[in-house]
Design a protein around this nucleic acid. Sequence first.
DNA 1: ACCTGAACACCGTTCAAGT
DNA 2: ACCTGAACACCGTTCAAGT
Lengths: 222, 222
Amino acid sequence: MLTLSTYDTFKKYIQPQMTKPPSEKSYHHKDLRQSLIKAALELIAQKQDASTLSLREVARRVGVSNAAPYRHFADKNALLAAVAEEGFYILTRYLHSSIENTSDDPLHQLQVSGVAYVKFAISHPSHYRVMFSAFKADNLCYPSLNAAGQEAFAVMMNAIASGQQLGKIKVGEPRQLAWVTWSLVHGLAMLLIDHQLPIIDEQDIVAVAELATQSLINGMRS
Amino acid sequence: MLTLSTYDTFKKYIQPQMTKPPSEKSYHHKDLRQSLIKAALELIAQKQDASTLSLREVARRVGVSNAAPYRHFADKNALLAAVAEEGFYILTRYLHSSIENTSDDPLHQLQVSGVAYVKFAISHPSHYRVMFSAFKADNLCYPSLNAAGQEAFAVMMNAIASGQQLGKIKVGEPRQLAWVTWSLVHGLAMLLIDHQLPIIDEQDIVAVAELATQSLINGMRS
DNA sequence: ACCTGAACACCGTTCAAGT
DNA sequence: ACCTGAACACCGTTCAAGT
């Protein structure tokens, strides 16, 4: 009895999603919203393509009716927006932690964050595809998505601005230099996850990412 | 009579597509294949999005049945592949003519061809979207498309290789440096046509493209 | 409050049949 | 040889109805 009650407490406060085994289907799904996001990512990973994902397919995989997703998302794009937003949060974490684990030199920080950007894309290709593919993320319909995207962008721009303040990066609008840096890592990320570059080995990918970021930052020195 | 026969000759040899006015619909379409490509580009331009293009919509715009396109293209992707291939030919012309109209300095050639790449993308956004968006161009199913893409890539790589031979660009695999250059202009092109950068004026776009290419090439000097 | 079933208008694709 | 009409299996989305 004691062990059981301890286990119950564990389930309730530590892992509430384990209170029922997944095989025991209930009419009311546990956390359908998060399950739909997860299933969408799995299907995109499986097909290597976000554009052919269907909402019915996602519903089927979760074991729910065609109409069920509409309780949690206004439409298919809203689900994709949620996936993209999640992706931007993860990307921002990647960028921040890459900077934390390096020296105070803003040039070095900018370089490692560029490599971290590419590493994020190849580690989370399904997220990245949704964040930047067919789905029109330019929409003002998703303000929290927009905010998440700008937060990630700000990390790179801040590294550039502090590099300029220390006189290590050439003068000019930091925004413009950040656009250039973003273009480089975004272009490389897109070409990599769409398999347009004949590189497969992760070490080779990191080598190209380092060559890319080092070349650009070398050219942006003051 | 003389004028009429002269006009007939003109129509037949100079502008054969004018022999019948477009309002006079014939059972057999004049050049359905090319008309479908043209209509697809127009619809993508109208929607600013290639992913929501439907083949039925294209057929409707041309004034033909749902099944008619299948006489000329194996499926929807084959039509998109034709659009993409056309795009790569135009891109290659852009790159070549940008190099022809400049000095013999390979560094300068590389720089203007990078700007020409971005100019192509913003001048032909519908082509560019199809060339690099959802549609999986990695397919070996379209060898002529693949060849057209590699031809465009070769222009940039050759500029880099000759820069290296003259000792103006740092040593290293020219293929890798070309990937880096391609990443930069491709990333900028994608962000621009997806309206992810708040730049609208063409002069501002060219300014950023020049900043980008000049910075990278500066960093690739030997 | 959350989900289902059935329906609507769309889509890609095929195939017999028309000219 | 080239195109149509009708059909099939899919899809996004809605809405009354169920629990």
